[in-house]
Design a protein around this nucleic acid. Structure first.
Lengths: 227, 227
DNA sequence: GTCTATATAGCGATAGAC
DNA sequence: GTCTATCGCTATATAGAC
């Protein structure tokens, strides 16, 4: 990772090598982590030259950003599309809004399990890394959709203060993230009883849990005093 | 990381250098990640020689394992102590059992924020890393307490199937993990409205959310059919 | 047990020919 | 745009003196 935060000459124009590099990088990032995947391994897998990464993306960090942007753009767009659809139906329901938020992520996970490996886990990994630049970049990808979903939830839960809503939404997002990133641990721990194979079934369970948490009785004013 | 999984000559015997290495390693792992913290930096911070790590822990991975074991042992013990206490009170309540599970972790986080930095985030990081050995090792640290807590929860929620309980517990653990690992993101996103400063207040909120999720109406038999 | 010195290897980045 | 060759650096691990 070099201190070169600029985007490079050909940021969006199509290129066979460029796409091959993105595919190879994604697969190797999933498999070995961001640091564990060397530019040498990536370019070799892509059938490209070692110098190609620097030409197309400026640096390894530029490549990382491009990999995530390619995945997260469509995910956010799908979330917003479903939210529009839900709100068009008489304002929508709490359950419907949450389905619009969670569904696309679970389906992406299910699809990516069949493909290059678990991209969801990779995304979760970034949020736990010490590299603050990357975390901020990733957060910026998510922020726009949050600015649509949070008001939608607030409208459906007018009895919650904004603070209480943020806390509960944070908890629910945690439940979702755990499922996206560590679902395989549940499968293992439950000895196969719990399976992520069907994303729609998981979505039902997760939304039910999330709704119940959001609707739990608010004891907002006056935090409990403890012994 | 070398392929030397054996524990080394002096695994538990006290040593000034050994402890200094553990302290330095923990602080640098938090700050720079497992890969980002080099043995050079660790030994230098500990005032020890570069070769000391290999002498005391066999390899960098051995050092990593020792760092986590030193933290997680007391955490699990505290959880089980509180669970015993809770169950001694007429079998205990759902809320009390969850407080025994979550409280120690939140308090550890609050304490470690004041100390070497956020160890909780570091632990969360491991669960998202590609290194399966480490994840398995960490999971083994948690498994014994799960084997006490899950039956306790099942006893208090007899109407839930074991499968349903596992899913919901998984979701709740996700809410907790998100708070432990990414609490700072909520603080930032809420522009200070939500603060983790008081672990007991966060515990109240989290337990309320978790209880509501566990108690949500079970529609277990017959998964919903979708369009 | 602790040190110095070094072996061995991998990394990201770049210069410059084509 | 793609290549080769290489620079400059860092890493873990270890041998051998003390």
């Amino acid at each position: 990772m070099n201190p070169t935060p600029e985007t490079h000459p050909t940021p969006t124009q199509p290129s066979q090598t460029r796409d091959a590099l993105l595919d190879a990088a994604e697969a190797l990032f999933v498999e070995h982590g961001l640091e564990g995947a060397s530019l040498r391994a990536i370019t070799q897998r892509a059938g490209a030259n070692l110098a190609a990464v620097n030409y197309h993306f400026g640096s390894k960090e530029g490549l990382v950003r491009a990999v995530f942007h390619r995945r997260l753009g469509p995910l956010q767009a799908e979330r917003l599309r479903l939210l529009d659809e839900e709100e068009a139906l008489d304002g929508g329901t709490l359950e419907g809004v949450l389905r619009a938020f969670i569904g696309p992520a679970l389906r992406m996970k299910a699809a990516s399990n069949a493909g290059p490996g678990d991209v969801s886990q990779l995304i979760g990994r970034i949020f736990h890394e010490p590299n603050d630049e990357l975390r901020t970049m990733l957060f910026a990808e998510f922020a726009p959709s949050l600015q649509r979903f949070l008001p939608a939830l607030q409208r459906l839960l007018p009895e919650l203060s904004r603070e209480e809503l943020l806390w509960r939404f944070h908890f629910g997002v945690g439940a979702m993230s755990q499922t996206l990133s560590c679902g395989s641990m549940l499968e293992r721990f439950s000895e196969g009883r719990c399976s992520m194979a069907n994303p729609e079934e998981v979505l039902d369970r997760l939304v039910r849990f999330f709704v119940a948490g959001l609707r739990s009785p608010a004891s907002d004013p006056g935090p409990t005093v403890h012994s």
